[in-house]
């Protein structure tokens, strides 16, 4: 039997604007995934611990405040330290193109979704990425 895809949707940093994170969480749930939403103001340590405990295959980080260059590398480093390199990390929010390219190339982020990204596109991206690594 097919195991449901488990996703942690995390709101990182001090920003409280959770509209996007909540919409994504619902859309992934409606697409049949198991979604764990962390709530607000999660540090990288809290996010990685939650990902470990919940045994997720995907982490979706929502960052709108411009703090992505400080937060994402720390999350990726902690994942490596815990041997969780196989977790698919996605970033959604206000991330300029140059930063998005660097997060993917240098940090190993699988996908960066900017404003206007379609929900369906994100669902498809997760499914196809996990199929490739399975």
């Amino acid at each position: 039997m097919d195991k449901r895809i488990r996703v942690l949707v995390a709101k990182a940093g001090l920003d409280g604007h959770d509209r996007g994170a909540k919409v994504i969480a619902r859309a992934l749930r409606d697409a049949g995934m198991e979604v764990i939403y962390t709530g607000l103001r999660q540090t990288p340590e809290m996010i990685v611990n939650a990902a470990l405990q919940e045994d997720v295959q995907v982490i979706g980080l929502s960052i709108l405040s411009g703090a992505h260059n400080a937060i994402v590398p720390r999350v990726m480093q902690l994942l490596r330290e815990k041997g969780m390199d196989d977790v698919l990390v996605l970033v959604g929010g206000i991330v300029p193109d140059e930063d998005a390219a660097l997060l993917k190339q240098n940090q190993g982020v699988a996908g960066v979704f900017q404003p206007g990204a379609s929900l369906d596109g994100i669902v498809q991206f997760i499914r196809s990425s996990l199929e490739r690594t399975a």
Partner: peptide, 18 residues
């Protein structure tokens, strides 16, 4: 900025990057 809005000084650990 967010640290000020959340009542943290600039050098608080939670202010990193913000």
């Amino acid at each position: 900025d967010l640290p000020t809005l959340m009542g943290y000084d600039a050098d608080h650990p939670n202010s990193l990057g913000e």
